[in-house]
Design a protein around this nucleic acid. Structure first.
Length: 310
DNA sequence: AAGTCGGGGGC
DNA sequence: GCCCCAGACTT
């Protein structure tokens, strides 16, 4: 959960997740849908799928436990070198370094490491953090290094006057702290418009499971179309029985894409045949909240629905 | 080596 | 608005 996600955001999800899946075995035996639902709103949903797979692999191959071995850990889906190092050092107090975003920043400043190319930059950072790694007190050392990065050696306005290693920090010595680390190259965001169909009937909304190809793969959401024509011509929902009553617009930003989501709302007060299939169904908005989906959009949609009802 | 994947906080 | 965050995986 902590991969590319700040601690404050994770805490509630973590507690809920541990309540729901208290052991590795219980996670391994869970349905994928339930695991994803517990992840709903946290983002990077492949992390949930990988965690689930890892639990299943460890359940079968490692006797319901994580292996205490760097290479074996790194072969598990979703566990790279940093996460493997975190497991070994924090759980077992073994001398394996971590290179997360915080430690990267500390290392970059401490030894004035910079490079044009990302791969060479990361290699230098790993080498540096390996050389500094002590053979004892590994748990406390790694935790302290991350805390140093998150609380003292912050990205902007670092608190160098309170830093315990300021005397040996090359960036500090040369008064160049602000120059490190170099800002990352930006991947430009591509604008994309989608047309979304919101069907409301007797307090329920229609949702479907997305395919594996596009964004939000295999999550439940309202039907999305590339063009308004495709939305209009989707006879799946017998649009002639519905009354169009509202359009609204949602701007949603992903890491690599700016989405302009145009929501087309249709209402129907008569009873309809609500078929539930594997990948399509009707659901009350309250139930919708418990499904795997991009929740940032659910709040907005719920607000519009609430306003319409009153 | 570059692209992909969410959502949110800081400034 | 831009950058980054307790990164890893795919192409």
């Amino acid at each position: 959960m902590l991969q590319q996600t700040q601690v404050i955001k994770v805490i509630d999800y973590f507690n809920n997740f541990i309540d729901r899946f208290p052991t590795l075995k219980s996670l391994a035996e869970a349905e994928s849908e339930q695991v994803l639902a517990c992840w709903s709103g946290l983002g990077y949903y492949n992390r949930a799928r990988n965690l689930h797979k890892t639990a299943q692999i460890c359940s079968i191959e490692h006797g319901d436990q994580l292996p205490v071995d760097l290479n074996q850990l790194m072969q598990l889906p979703g566990i790279g070198r940093t996460t493997a190092g975190a497991i070994l050092s924090l759980a077992s107090d073994l001398p394996y370094p971590i290179l997360d975003g915080n430690v990267k920043r500390v290392m970059s400043r401490f030894n004035k490491i910079s490079d044009e190319k990302t791969s060479a930059y990361n290699a230098k950072l790993w080498k540096q953090v390996e050389e500094l790694m002590p053979k004892s007190h590994c748990r406390k050392y790694n935790q302290a290094l991350m805390d140093l990065g998150s609380m003292i050696c912050t990205r902007s306005k670092p608190h160098c006057h309170r830093c315990p290693i300021m005397k040996n920090c090359k960036a500090r010595i040369s008064d160049q702290v602000a120059l490190f680390p170099q800002s990352n190259k930006k991947t430009r965001q591509i604008n994309k418009t989608y047309h979304i169909l919101l069907l409301v009937s007797e307090g329920q909304i229609y949702i479907e499971k997305r395919n594996s190809q596009s964004i939000w793969p295999q999550l439940w959401f309202l039907p999305m179309f590339d063009t308004e024509q495709k939305l209009q011509s989707s006879n799946l929902f017998e649009l002639e029985h519905y009354t169009h009553y509202l359009n609204f617009n949602i701007k949603h930003i992903l890491t690599h894409r700016k989405l302009d989501l145009q929501v087309h709302c249709y209402k129907n007060t008569t009873t309809i045949d609500r078929k539930i299939t594997k990948n399509k169904k009707w659901t009350a908005i309250s139930q919708y909240k418990k499904l795997p989906h991009p929740t940032a959009l659910v709040k907005i949609i719920q607000n519009y629905l609430a306003n319409e009802d009153t």
